[in-house]
Design a binder for these strands. Sequence first.
DNA 1: CTAAAGTTTGACACTGGTGTCAATGTCAAG
DNA 2: CTTGACATTGACACCAGTGTCAAACTTTAG
Lengths: 131, 131
Amino acid sequence: MKIGELATRTGVTTRLIRYYEQQDLLEADRAANGYRTYTEEHVERVSRVAGLVQAGIPTRLVKILIDAEDAANREDPTCPREVAEQLATELVGVQARIDCLTRSRDSIRKFLTATQHEVLLREERESAAAV
Amino acid sequence: MKIGELATRTGVTTRLIRYYEQQDLLEADRAANGYRTYTEEHVERVSRVAGLVQAGIPTRLVKILIDAEDAANREDPTCPREVAEQLATELVGVQARIDCLTRSRDSIRKFLTATQHEVLLREERESAAAV
DNA sequence: CTAAAGTTTGACACTGGTGTCAATGTCAAG
DNA sequence: CTTGACATTGACACCAGTGTCAAACTTTAG
């Protein structure tokens, strides 16, 4: 598929897809005419990258994270001690963000419930189901 | 306490503390000499704000979130339907970030384990305990 | 009293993520 | 063949979050 389709399917603008590629977060084959061509796997990957960036992870780290992610799903992964240490450090930062966001999420839910707006929480479940 | 102490205690630079105040995320009393003065509660608040900003929440939304947080802890909170709807919308975004980060976190753990670097996971638990 | 450290405001500047526009090229439909 | 939709690269520009520096004032330590 070409970049336009990838964009509509992921909800990420073509501009950003190119930007991510430039940041080494993505690779794309080129058709004979120079057009980038993508596979189904890229859909997942682009969403993933965009999600992390939106969660405040700088692209430099996003690369590290998804590389590790990929490696973790391959057999016999291996990595030098130093890289592992960096990952461990990042892990702490990621967890901190999760905690922070989780707390906000819970507060919002509590608040909506307390103000008799639980109905709105249904939207949340629905959008979760959509994933 | 004065801004310097607040900064060292929260690990947030004075520059940012002032910036957050300017963005209406913080309020500070002024001493007779014009110095900002803070209470213990501000320590928590500043960490919270900084955490959310780091998690990719724009300051505009941070304000909304912590306001709701505060309200949720007061008695008899109330809010107009429209505000509640906006919060519900935000909730979806927050949850999306959490999911995204959680996935990365799990991948990192898995990877570190698979590469015989579980030892490093201890650091994570320790830093979590430090909170 | 003086020097050092901390605070205030304000300005300038950088960075990273995005939007947008321009000029050019490719391709599919009429 | 022409037109319109989509691609390419490259440039310019914007915004938000931060760093940093300057000039003036306050407070603390010696």
